[in-house]
Amino acid sequence: MKISGSYTVPIPRDEAYKLLQDPVILAKCMPGTDHLEKIGEDEYEMKMKMAIASFSGLFTGKVKIADAHPPDNFMLLVEGSGKVGFLKGSGLLNLTPQEGATEVKYEGDVQVGGTIAAVGQRLLESTSKMIIKKFFEKFAEAATQPTT
């Protein structure tokens, strides 16, 4: 499944680029995740508890940052698997500066398998969009909060 879209975050590009690769920030923004465990260069392991209304699932997964071209773009690779299925996503994030803000364009491919793929077909695209939207909303929030 191909997905693409864009969000504008209210911080300058250099800062957005840095924060989008910050494991502490990523952990805050990924749904159902509170901690990323570093397992390699730009590679982290995590547990995600996904919950959308009645739907819930526990996933273990990895996040990896690749092909980094600061401050323009990088690839974000996410994978997770649990008893109800697995997902693999790769997305190219392109950052364009705007007045005091940054437009983040993403373009990627999501692969879903297992029960969620077999029975959740009609909701998959909307779910992906919703998760990405939530990610950026949380990101905008986290990015503008003073670090503690």
């Binding site: 793929a117 077999a118 077909q121």
Partner: peptide, 14 residues
């Protein structure tokens, strides 16, 4: 089936 071999009509919902 999708390109990865997932049967996406795996129930009578689809």
């Amino acid at each position: 089936y999708d390109d990865n071999g997932q049967l996406i009509t795996g129930e009578f919902m689809d």
